[in-house]
Design a protein around this nucleic acid. Structure first.
Ligand SMILES: [Mn+2]
Ligand SMILES: [Mn+2]
Ligand SMILES: [Zn+2]
Ligand SMILES: [Zn+2]
Lengths: 151, 151
DNA sequence: CGGTAAATGAAAACCACTTTCAATTATCAT
DNA sequence: ATGATAATTGAAAGTGGTTTTCATTTACCG
């Protein structure tokens, strides 16, 4: 439980005039805890229900949208039909995800070369590039070895 | 209307034992025509209705799925909630898309550096990478200039 | 404390997409 | 051609994540 991030987020919300409700605190606590990464709304709701039964799924959806607009969370898409969320910048700043098609295991990796591609493209296309989505999919080592055993 | 692509696709379908229905011909004709790029099922349906009123939206969905499985079309995601389709390989092979957030204008660009990122990541993570999905968003020159005028 | 506007939650709506199933039709053997 | 057969079609209903509605509750400020 990273206390810094929790307090910073509360301050940000207060400064912008949003009410600090128990529901919002619960969602914030979850995402500031260590185990919470790349959660869907449903997963976040399930995780919260244990301690705070009085938080509706709809409110979780609204918190996730609000926190994303305020810059506390990032919305991620693994292209699996679910919107997912993590702390803005994650553990180590802007990064992308490599997702296992078998077990869902996620590896994070830094920005690397996308920025230079962006600069080239801005010159070529005349666009002002605002952002990018990059997702890689494959099989993790464990799943690959398990699959080979089956043959 | 690229006749080659249309005939190749028909042959591919016939060889695999699929029936050559008027509906399938109509969808194929559309995607082999010059103006058709990155179409949603609804857009494809709208475009077809003029000439062939007897094609249901459901059948368009089924054609798009079939043609993707057979390798005639590629499914693309612009992260806007719609599945989009274009001729397999597009104009110039594997490529990615730079989409304007204002007007939807799309610029295509080649694979460039993603492959080398993939190779690095395979060594680092142990994954066997099967594919990637990259989308860039921004404002095209026209929309940027129009926005600046408004100030 | 009240007053007030924001926030909540249950239910219903939304919407792209998929499934169901009875009717139609392309294909092929006769 | 003709008929048998299984694939294909389309209207309608279903799916599932997300959003909206609206009556009720509540955090916040004076
Ligand atoms: Mn992450
Ligand atoms: Mn393209
Ligand atoms: Zn795995
Ligand atoms: Zn534009």
């Amino acid at each position: 439980m990273k206390a810094d991030c929790f307090d910073d987020a509360l301050r940000e919300l207060r400064e912008r005039g949003f009410k600090l409700t128990p529901q919002r605190r619960a969602v914030l606590e979850l995402f500031c805890s260590d185990g919470a990464r790349h959660l869907t709304a449903q997963q976040a709701h399930d995780a919260i229900r244990g301690r705070e039964p009085n938080v509706g799924l709809v409110t979780v959806y609204r918190c996730l949208e609000l926190f994303t607009n305020v810059g506390i969370l990032d919305k991620i898409k693994f292209n699996d039909g679910f919107d997912r969320y993590e702390l803005h910048g994650g553990a180590s700043g802007h990064h992308h995800h490599l997702v296992c098609t078998e077990c869902g295991h996620v590896v994070e990796f830094g920005d690397c070369l996308i920025r230079s591609i962006e600069r080239k493209l801005e010159k070529m296309s005349g666009f002002c590039i605002e952002g990018h989505w990059l997702e890689l999919i494959g099989q993790c080592r464990e799943c690959r070895e398990r699959t080979e055993e089956d043959d």
